[in-house]
């Protein structure tokens, strides 16, 4: 029953399989293209210096964590005002603050979430502008 050769071949095949994403990238050319998200909304266009509550880079990396903090602070602690790192104050609200500028859910949130294959559960309750428009027709 015990054949070391077979085991070694099996181990190598297994490693080759699970490292597929690593070695396959050696043979592909060009850089990965991120999701193309749109900032073309009336509110953002009207801003002289378009800026989110925090820096764009920071928001890209941390918005999910920030929103999770908002959720706790607003609902449980009653702290509805978020004081950003630059001292600017915002109403901590996904529907009333984020969507005010990012009124294009499909072109902004959804595109990137789909690209990254994540499905946040926010939208079972929080209504995105498109749902409101369609639902209220």
């Amino acid at each position: 029953m015990y054949k070391p050769r077979n085991i070694i071949i099996g181990v190598i095949a297994f490693l080759a399989l699970i490292f597929f994403p690593v070695w396959s990238s050696l043979f592909t050319t060009g850089e990965a293209v991120g999701a193309e998200i749109s900032l073309d909304t009336p509110m953002i266009n009207a801003m002289e210096n378009p800026k989110c509550v925090e820096d764009t880079e920071w928001m890209r990396a941390n918005h999910m964590k920030l929103l999770a903090d908002w959720k706790v602070e607003v609902v449980r602690n009653g702290n509805r005002i978020y004081v950003a790192e630059d001292g600017q104050k915002y109403l901590a609200s996904l529907q009333n603050t984020c969507f005010e500028c990012h009124s294009n859910y499909d072109e902004f949130c959804l595109k990137c979430h789909e690209y990254n294959n994540v499905s946040p559960t926010c939208w079972t309750c929080h209504v995105e502008p498109t749902v409101v428009e369609e639902g209220n027709k």
């Binding site: 509550v53 925090e54 920071w58 941390n62 964590k65 920030l66 903090d69 602070e73 602690n77 009653g78 702290n79 509805r80 005002i81 978020y82 004081v83 950003a84 790192e85 109403l91 901590a92």
Partner: peptide
Amino acid sequence: AQIGGSYQKDSAR
């Protein structure tokens, strides 16, 4: 732990 800025109640509360 929390990240980013800080939190407060609205002054008009």
